[in-house]
């Protein structure tokens, strides 16, 4: 039995769509741009409510990033919407120069990230985006765990002044974060207390970690589960406090191991408290077509893989 319960399954991109609508109601300076994926990004509600603040840019992501940067001059808060692949790799230089280096208040909202995009396959399953975005000075990188948290994060970044990369996904996924829970940028979220090992998870992998904890508990292993929804800036204080107690950890993310959350955590640990650590993520390969859960299992991101990683980390203590 998992310690946390989920109420239903909903896609995080719908959380974004709902959050964007709320942000638009709250602040008239919020504007949205989309590159021909309004339905996929669930931006229709915003478009319908605020047609004069919604800008269809067509299949032209580079221009979308530049437009968004320009729109901040004069006080608008632009939210760009397209798939994570086209939100990062395709437009890296535009983001680097016009948004990050120029410190523009643009919210880059990226859906269909990772393997759980599913059947569309590796061309669209970006697994390098977190690495690219966290390397950029001035950039905040956020990857919420479920529908409710994505909605709350979308509203929170509208109130934050500075460039943000918000990563979310396509599949329906367990909703377990309380509705209307306030989202605190940069604050790690302890979901389950434990003493033998810590799982630091982000995005869809947070629920996988919750399930892994239940299995480990049945084996007599006490695991702490921490949701790192903000990958940059990283809550190093919370990370160090947890491993000081548990003595080992696992990072779990739907991303390449290289460049991901685990790498950032490892950097923190090696400088402060080098404890045994294992990585659950994609290991230097592209994805492929398939069903989300099957893909997670094949590429080493299943619940069982987290369980094994925790056991390995504990053995190395």
């Amino acid at each position: 039995m998992t310690k946390l319960k989920y109420t239903e399954k909903k896609d995080t991109r719908s959380g974004f769509g709902a959050g964007l609508l709320e942000a638009g109601k709250k602040n008239k300076d919020v504007v949205a741009l989309c590159a021909d994926l309004t339905g996929s990004l669930k931006m229709n509600a915003f478009e319908n409510e605020f047609p004069e603040r919604f800008f269809q840019v067509g299949i032209a992501e580079a221009n979308m990033m530049g437009l968004a940067a320009g729109m901040t001059i004069g006080g608008k808060i632009p939210f760009t919407g397209t798939f994570a692949n086209f939100s990062t790799g395709r437009v890296y230089d535009q983001i680097r120069q016009s948004i990050a280096y120029s410190d523009k208040n643009v919210k880059i909202c990226a859906s269909h990230a990772g393997l759980t995009l599913g059947e569309d396959g590796a061309t669209h399953q970006i697994l390098e985006d977190v690495g690219m975005m966290k390397m950029l000075p001035n950039m905040t990188v956020i990857c919420p765990a479920d529908y409710n948290q994505t909605k709350a994060a979308t509203m929170a970044i509208a109130d934050y002044d500075g460039p943000v990369y918000l990563r979310f996904g396509r599949p329906k996924w367990p909703v377990f974060i309380p509705e209307n829970e306030k989202f605190e940028i940069g604050k790690a979220q302890k979901l389950i207390e434990g003493s033998d090992a810590t799982i630091f998870a982000t995005g869809h992998m947070v629920w996988q970690a919750v399930e892994a904890e239940a299995i480990l508990e049945s084996k007599g292993i006490s695991v702490e589960v921490i949701n790192i929804h903000t990958i940059k800036p990283l809550d190093t204080e919370a990370i160090l406090a947890s491993v000081a107690k548990t003595g080992c950890c696992v990072a779990a993310e739907e991303h390449q191991i290289a460049g991901g959350l685990g790498e950032s955590i490892a950097q923190t640990l090696i400088q402060n408290n080098p404890v045994p650590m294992e990585f659950v993520g994609v290991n230097d390969s592209f994805g492929e077509s398939g069903k989300p859960v099957e893909l997670l299992a094949k590429y080493g991101l299943g619940v069982e893989h987290i369980v094994q990683a925790v056991e390995s980390a504990i053995k190395r203590k």
Binding site: G66, L67, A69, G70, G74, D93, Q97, S98, S102, D103
Partner: peptide, 30 residues
């Protein structure tokens, strides 16, 4: 660049092809 705060500069440029997008975005905001 804007990073050092030179008066008159509103966005960085140098990597080519990006200025018209920024200009059109700013014009849209106006």
């Amino acid at each position: 660049a804007t990073e050092e705060g030179l008066p008159g500069i509103r966005i960085a440029s140098g990597s080519l092809g990006q200025g018209l997008s920024a200009c059109v975005g700013a014009a849209q905001t106006k």
